[in-house]
Design a protein around this nucleic acid. Sequence first.
DNA 1: ATAACGATATGATAATTATCATGGCATGAT
DNA 2: ATCATGCCATGATAATTATCATATCGTTAT
Lengths: 228, 228
Amino acid sequence: MDPACSCELCELRGLFFESLKKEYADLICSGKVEKAFKQGETIIKEGTHIKDFVYLKSGLVKLYRRDDNGREQIISIAKPFDYVSLLSVFSTDRYNYSVTALEDSVTCNLNMDDIRTIIKQNGNLALNLLQKMSVLADTLILDSLEIRKKHLRGRVAFLLLRFANEIYFSNEFELPLSRKEMAEYVGMTTENVIRSLSEFRKDGILKIYGKTIQIVNMETLRSISEFG
Amino acid sequence: MDPACSCELCELRGLFFESLKKEYADLICSGKVEKAFKQGETIIKEGTHIKDFVYLKSGLVKLYRRDDNGREQIISIAKPFDYVSLLSVFSTDRYNYSVTALEDSVTCNLNMDDIRTIIKQNGNLALNLLQKMSVLADTLILDSLEIRKKHLRGRVAFLLLRFANEIYFSNEFELPLSRKEMAEYVGMTTENVIRSLSEFRKDGILKIYGKTIQIVNMETLRSISEFG
DNA sequence: ATAACGATATGATAATTATCATGGCATGAT
DNA sequence: ATCATGCCATGATAATTATCATATCGTTAT
């Protein structure tokens, strides 16, 4: 094995390498490129030719599209272990969304041709990928339906709960999104995101210090998210 | 080859069998079950254990979820060649949506364990499935974003165009959905679907005879869908 | 035949949400 | 320093959409 290849130590290796024989793992590993991105930097640009299979080692990124009027629509927030390029990567040769870093992030890029070659010879990897892609697609679709059926306050509550419980695992966190981006995520206007946050603050559900949010009353927030 | 197995003649065989060696194709083929459903019948019920890999030979079906308030949300309309169970099938052991027939339909059900076994030994099939799943997921997500950014009239126009141009390939067709179901698909109320249709009729864009729709002015409908 | 029901349809009104205007407060550029 | 710019914030108003009430029509059950 290539001694310069540290994939065996990578905290993500299980996702990929658990299903691969050593020789294949080495091929992937030696072909990989790690890239670091600062907050705000573009990782993938919509319309770009797909060459790499990208996953996120650390940080936080947003996937989004720009519509005809130049407005952005955020598709999802991806955290480490998520396969950033997974959706488009097998369906087309160009990305149909962009990805930018919400926090300083590190990606690991694997060569797409290598991946294809290995899949053809390795059924376990294929099943593994099918499963991950299936989970991802399911999640995105269910989230989308979930958000759609809520009122504005419920959408903002939903987002805050997501950050608290599934990303930062804390009642207090710094929002990685601007108010505008939150609006782009849940399909409402910036003003109404701000208004909802202000109302939550006035009702004693949150404390807000700029981008830092402290959830004071998790239960109420939860019931607003479910319907209130 | 099993002489009773007519998969070689199936119009769908290309989707599956083009990537399989004969021996595997025979295994799949002899394990398949074809099922016929009348309009309105349930094909898959949310929460049910997944045993089969289902695809649609003929007809038209809706995929939908029931939310906590008992309301239905339609995820998509699937037409022949679509892999009805594709989304959940690799991610979980239970369906998280239901499928019912909008028209008389025939499905072909393959044994999921067989599929898994064969994928492990057949990389081309795996890549083929990955690609199809990727396309499907992409489409669902982009459609969802597309619908979300439109006003109500635009959503109804979008739906009508979809039926005319991608399903029935005609300016005149019989709606496979009730007004209520159209509303559940695009996230609006039944009354407003009806109102939009009535307005299109008054404006001379459509002729409506119950469930039969004739699109008189395709261009106007298209511009309403895009934004108007 | 008649009653009951669900789908279609329309209007009036209420609720929700977007848009527009304005101002404060940071931050970075000149 | 001050200027411009991009968030954040709030209020007033307009637009959009949902809800409620009511009626018709067709179908099915009795």
